[in-house]
Amino acid sequence: MSLPMTVRDPALPGRVRIHEVGARDGLQNEKTAVPTEVKAEFVRRLAAAGLTTIEATSFVHPKWVPQLADAEELFPRVRDLPVRLPVLVPNERGLDRALALGAREVAVFASATESFAKANLNRTVDEALAMFAPTVTRAIEAGLKVRGYLSMCFGDPWEGAVPVEQVVRVTKALADMGCDELSLGDTIGVATPGHVGALLTALNEAGVPDSRLAVHFHDTYGQALSNTLAALRHGVTTVDASAGGLGGCPYAKSATGNLATEDLVWMLDGLGIETGVDLTALTATSVWMADQLGRPSPSRTVRALSHKES
């Protein structure tokens, strides 16, 4: 398998942690449910490829995300893997389910815009934050790490461009609530590098350091990697990605797939940035998963490398 030539850029971080979301964010958008054992094997293969943080599933009501209705079956099959396995919890009921199964990390999912908060949570932004507060507090008291996702940080299909100060307000609220990490989501993929830099600078000025931030880009307009590079140059060292480019968003129909983990690793390998991920093993995993789903991977790197091998 060919690999990129490494040219180190001293202005960039030496190591990046990839927060792998394919098993949760990727598979929740599938038209039909993936068998539980296939999901478990997917997580195992991702761990074997060197990914150290793998979002396993979501403890939401099956009515809202039926593709992840098997969370109670899935999590016990993977929870003893030697990796971080965060799970999404929308409220205290979801947290109870996660705690009962021994989850050590959870995430809540907020919105920077009123329209998406209504579509995704059937609440206003502030009502959603109020709902998350006791969940986050209880999780922290139980010794869990808590991640706060923030959707629609750059654009909203109903509201258009999202003002930076609006995103800062909600991000700061999640930070003040006690979330260890805050993932900034470009849910419909409209961000550009300048916009990314402006938001990160504004968050730093509001007291939220890059060390608490992660970025979560979608590749709708082909900007995910350039936006990621802008975030790395700013100082962010945690990047969300999805193996094989799986995923979208069931509540935002214009959202296309997530940044493919293989495309990210190819770029980071070329920049001499350590991730601990074996690109060959990761590509093989995504080819395997594409076979399970019955369609080719949208990842350009997966297609290029698997074509070279065939």
Rank of each mutant, 00 (worst) to 15 (best):
W158R: 14
H218I: 05
V167G: 01
V136F: 06
G160Q: 06
L184M: 11
G257E: 08
V170A: 01
M5D: 13
A161K: 12
V162S: 01
S2D: 13
L184K: 06
T36I: 08
M152S: 00
V43S: 02
E30P: 07
V168W: 07
S183Y: 00
R45Y: 03
M5I: 14
E73T: 11
V239M: 12
P209I: 06
D70H: 09
E159V: 00
T275V: 11
M177A: 11
K39T: 01
A56I: 02
Q223H: 13
A175S: 15
R45D: 07
H61D: 15
D180C: 11
D156C: 15
A112H: 10
V167A: 13
T171C: 15
G14P: 00
P82K: 10
T280R: 15
L264F: 11
P163W: 07
V38C: 01
L232H: 05
A191I: 09
M177W: 04
R77E: 01
F109W: 10
M152A: 10
G155M: 02
A224G: 10
R147I: 07
V125D: 01
W158C: 02
D25W: 00
L268M: 05
T228V: 12
N91R: 05
L85W: 02
T32C: 12
A260M: 05
V87H: 02
V162F: 05
G222T: 12
K63D: 02
G94H: 01
R97F: 09
V38H: 07
E262I: 09
S226R: 13
L101M: 12
S297A: 12
V239I: 15
D263C: 11
S254P: 06
T32E: 15
R169E: 13
G194V: 05
I188W: 04
L279Q: 02
L85T: 06
S306Y: 05
R233Q: 12
H216Q: 04
T57P: 04
Q292E: 13
A231S: 12
